[in-house]
Amino acid sequence: MSGASIAMHMSDGIVDAPTSAVFGLIAAGGLGYALVRARAQLDERTAPMAGLVAAFVFALQMINFPILPGVSGHLLGGALAAILVGPWLGSVCVGIVLIVQALLFADGGLTALGTNITNMAIIGTAVGFGVALALRPLAARGRRWLVAVAFVSAFVNTVVASLGFVLQYAIGGAGGASLGAVAVSMVGLHALIGIGEGIITALTVGAVASARPDLVYLLRGKAPRPRTAPAPQVSPEGSAS
């Protein structure tokens, strides 16, 4: 790995203890709700499907891309997961990846887990998918439009997740003053990360849409509600590879 790698995983001590506790509760509630919705969508398929999608998100985060000379960012994958498998399963997967990274890989502080989950798994994914949902009529027009919508959604996801950090820093930042400088540098940096994230998300969604358009959650059906009836489970080519 060359140069510094910017991950948005906050460490311990950036926000104070009460703020960490409050966002811990928000994260637990949000993740719990997303889990309930994901189970309604997938039933007993939840565990294996979410497990594999989470493994995919985990592997995805190993991809570094250059932002500035010597600085690289890695993918978050929140918007990508939400567009491909839906916001509920997407949130759950990103949240679980964050939990595992904090516990097994010391990436992100234990007390910062609540703030990290809130920013990346909940706020980022929700707003990113909200943008994609609002632009869905555009995305349905064709592959080129879908790619553009995926880019905007991933860009917004990244920037909004960094705004979550700014909010937490404003509430309980251990640094105190100069919130403006923090906001400008965080949002500026993440706008750059967001461009990289947006490009890769857009092209990935495009690639999936041309190979298996039925798997792109954003394009499914007219109504955005997940289907509860048992879905067709395995495609014939699924068992071949």
């Binding site: 995919f56 699924g238 590879s241």
Partner: peptide, 23 residues
């Protein structure tokens, strides 16, 4: 980046289909 993204796309498809097989 296009090449990376196409790989990520097929990685997703392989992961998803593996999930279906694992299930």
């Amino acid at each position: 980046a296009g090449a990376v993204a196409r790989s990520v796309g097929s990685l997703f498809l392989r992961s998803y289909e593996r999930g279906e097989r694992v299930h």
